[in-house]
Simulated scan of single mutants.
Amino acid sequence: MLTGAYVARPSPLHRIPAGPKLAALAGGCTALLLVRTLPGVVVGLAAVVVLYAVGRIRPVEAWVQVRPLRWFMAVLLVVQLLITDVGTAVSLTSRIVLAVALAGLVTLTTRTTDLMAAMERGLGPLRRVGVDPVRVSLMMSLLIRSVPVVTGIAQRVRDAQRARGQERSIRAFAVPLVVGVLRYADTLGEALQARGMDD
């Protein structure tokens, strides 16, 4: 859900309101958590592929949703292989990727404003316990919009590493990335403060 950007297409998924889609996403992710076998993961993969096809999402657009996870998933898979069996390791990493793919599908087929409006309505009853649905919705909106920005910063840092011949240096990647993200956070904070949302 955090890597997607709305793609306007005439598909059945695009016509479904944001609320039911968020509820279906929660149900789908819960179902993935309950899967423990490789055949179950295969069924989940088939379902995700069918849903992307129904939503008329191109393969390259689908790949963008999970591409940022590739290195994290590789490390996680290696760690899991060291502490458990192959089937469990593959199942765990695959389920995480499928959950992210499902979330990405929701954001690809739903406008961000519709998602935030649905979230505000869903959180409405929590006003009684001091939760401000508008602020929570704004926070989620900023989070969704920030992920592509951070990914872009990471890609620029990686390109600069390659240009300097320092592809294997963790420090050469981590330090500029942190600095870039902090600068972006400062800019975002100043924009929110200018709009009176600094409390």
Score class of each variant (00 low, 15 high):
L69T: 01
R156D: 10
G40Y: 09
D199V: 02
P10F: 09
P17W: 08
L25D: 09
E167S: 12
I144H: 12
T107E: 04
R15F: 09
V60L: 14
G180H: 00
E61T: 08
V129G: 06
L38F: 11
A185H: 02
V66L: 09
L22T: 04
R9G: 04
M1A: 13
Q65Y: 09
V48P: 01
V35L: 13
V54D: 01
T30L: 15
A185D: 03
I96W: 13
T84I: 05
L92Q: 10
L115C: 07
L98F: 14
V78L: 15
L126R: 01
S91I: 03
V150L: 14
L98W: 06
V7W: 04
T112G: 12
R111V: 02
P148V: 11
R168D: 08
S91Q: 09
Y6I: 05
V54F: 15
D159P: 03
A154R: 10
A174Q: 05
D114A: 15
S146G: 05
A26W: 05
A160R: 10
M119F: 07
V136N: 09
L51K: 02
F173Q: 01
S94E: 02
T187D: 14
G196Y: 01
R145S: 12
F72I: 04
M73N: 13
Y52I: 04
L82R: 07
I57F: 04
A8H: 09
T107V: 02
E61K: 12
Q161P: 00
V64Y: 15
A26N: 02
L76R: 06
A53P: 03
V64N: 13
T3H: 15
L13P: 00
R168W: 11
V175N: 01
F173D: 00
R70P: 06
R95M: 08
F72S: 09
R95L: 08
V90D: 05
R183I: 08
A160E: 14
P59L: 12
R67S: 05
V175G: 01
M139A: 13
M119W: 06
V43L: 11
